[in-house]
Computed example of a mutant assay.
Amino acid sequence: MLYGIAAAAATAALLLTAVLTALLRAPARRLGIVDRRRQRTVPQCGGIAVAFVTCLVAAAGEWTGVAPLDGGVRELLVAGAAVAALGLVADVRRVKARLLVGGTALAAAWVVPYGELGFGGGVLAAGWIVFVAVGFKALDHADALAGTVAVVTAFGVGVLAAAEMMDGLAALLSVLAAALTGFLMHNRPPARAGLGSCGALFAGFVLASAAVVTRTGHEPASSAGVLFSLTALAGADVVLVLLSRRLAGRPLLRGGPDHLAHRLRRLGLTSCGATVVLGVGAFSGVLVAVLAHLGWVAGSGVYWVAAGALVVVLGLLRVQPYAPRRPVNTQVRAQLRVRNG
């Protein structure tokens, strides 16, 4: 009975998100809520639809009593909505990165179960939630990539929640996965709508927070491995970008064509091909995490995921994403010294 209700709610979320995303495309263009990708502009309205519909369907289930949310799930959803609102502000106007990170950290600190994890474990869990949320925001640089990885991760975390008999959380994740699928109807290459900071931060935050909740009470080391495997692709993208910019002497927070999908395209893959390859990589990590959580594979299986992520990062680090700097001749240097006194 419960799974039938969850399926109906997920279907409603998929259809509502698909329709709302289409309706918001024109207003987003008029308001300038767009992102430029390869000489074209993409309205960043999909995230608004995903966050709004997910919260709406979940709230409707709670209000009608058909699919009530547990206390912890309710707090998680409220915190996720706050993160989505912060992301929407960033989509509408320029917001400093530290404000986004700080706001997400406050929301994460609110939902972390300190009673079971302890203060130190709670701080680490909150930091990991922020890292994953930022990682999903970074993935929203290529058509269909962030949405695909989020859908795969949502199904994986939903299986973990169902295995732990957390029915309310499993229902919420199914609704989120369905809403993201409805958004992907407009996000397949060439994308007609993007997630934006609103949707990417919301999806990453909810998924990471739900994963922490499902692993609460398990052995810390194995939990760390499962959580890493669930979001290995987003983590690998962040590490690759930070290492690349550090080695190149570029500002860490300045955008650039140095993400996983960018480098795969430089190796000859099409935009769709890069998304498929990365989607398969995300699925592989999620599958190992689910099997490890269910006890069907040894916990050491996550080491293979870590090794694979390390190989990918080191291998793609050799792909040069930046244009070579133009040398400055001696005469220009002399003129600059004269101008600068």
Results as ranks from 00 to 15, higher is better:
42 V>G: 04
73 V>L: 06
204 G>K: 06
247 L>H: 09
77 L>R: 01
179 A>S: 15
305 V>E: 01
86 L>K: 04
191 A>H: 10
182 G>D: 01
158 G>H: 05
16 L>K: 01
34 V>Q: 06
104 T>F: 06
20 L>W: 07
53 V>E: 00
310 L>T: 15
7 A>T: 13
213 V>H: 14
66 V>K: 00
132 V>E: 01
296 W>V: 13
170 A>Y: 11
240 L>S: 08
210 A>C: 05
70 D>Y: 06
233 L>Q: 05
160 L>N: 02
197 S>W: 13
115 G>L: 13
275 T>P: 09
142 A>D: 04
152 V>C: 04
325 R>L: 15
17 T>D: 00
42 V>P: 02
14 L>I: 02
264 L>V: 10
156 G>E: 04
327 P>D: 06
223 S>V: 07
245 R>Y: 05
105 A>S: 08
310 L>P: 00
59 A>F: 12
161 A>L: 09
333 R>T: 08
319 V>F: 07
143 D>T: 07
188 R>Y: 15
282 A>I: 10
26 A>Q: 14
310 L>V: 15
110 W>N: 03
316 L>F: 12
185 M>L: 15
50 V>W: 04
71 G>F: 11
9 A>R: 00
288 V>H: 10
115 G>C: 09
112 V>M: 04
272 C>H: 13
127 G>E: 08
134 V>H: 13
274 A>K: 08
220 P>G: 08
100 L>P: 03
242 L>I: 14
288 V>W: 10
173 L>T: 13
234 A>T: 12
28 A>P: 03
169 L>D: 03
106 L>F: 14
24 L>Y: 11
197 S>P: 01
110 W>C: 10
6 A>Q: 12
124 L>E: 03
5 I>S: 02
249 G>N: 05
175 V>E: 00
144 A>K: 07
128 W>Y: 15
309 A>Q: 05
239 V>E: 00
70 D>W: 13
247 L>T: 06
124 L>S: 08
107 A>R: 01
6 A>I: 13
93 R>I: 07
242 L>T: 12
271 S>H: 13
131 F>N: 03
168 G>K: 10
123 V>L: 15
220 P>T: 12
313 V>H: 02
23 L>V: 14
69 L>E: 02
86 L>P: 02
253 L>S: 03
180 L>G: 04
316 L>Y: 09
76 L>S: 05
38 R>I: 06
160 L>D: 01
164 E>Y: 05
1 M>H: 12
65 G>P: 04
36 R>I: 14
211 A>W: 09
55 C>W: 12
13 A>Y: 09
120 G>M: 13
282 A>N: 12
224 A>E: 04
264 L>D: 00
211 A>N: 05
190 P>R: 12
178 A>G: 09
335 Q>M: 13
271 S>Q: 14
322 Y>V: 10
24 L>T: 07
285 G>E: 06
1 M>P: 03
198 C>I: 08
238 V>G: 00
24 L>D: 03
34 V>E: 13
94 R>S: 14
239 V>P: 02
251 P>A: 04
201 L>K: 07
157 V>R: 09
269 L>H: 09
82 A>K: 09
279 G>A: 14
122 G>C: 11
123 V>D: 00
6 A>W: 14
67 A>Y: 01
308 G>S: 05
226 V>I: 15
71 G>I: 07
193 A>L: 14
214 T>F: 06
202 F>P: 01
229 S>R: 08
74 R>Y: 04
75 E>W: 13
238 V>D: 00
124 L>A: 15
62 E>C: 02
141 H>S: 11
189 P>W: 05
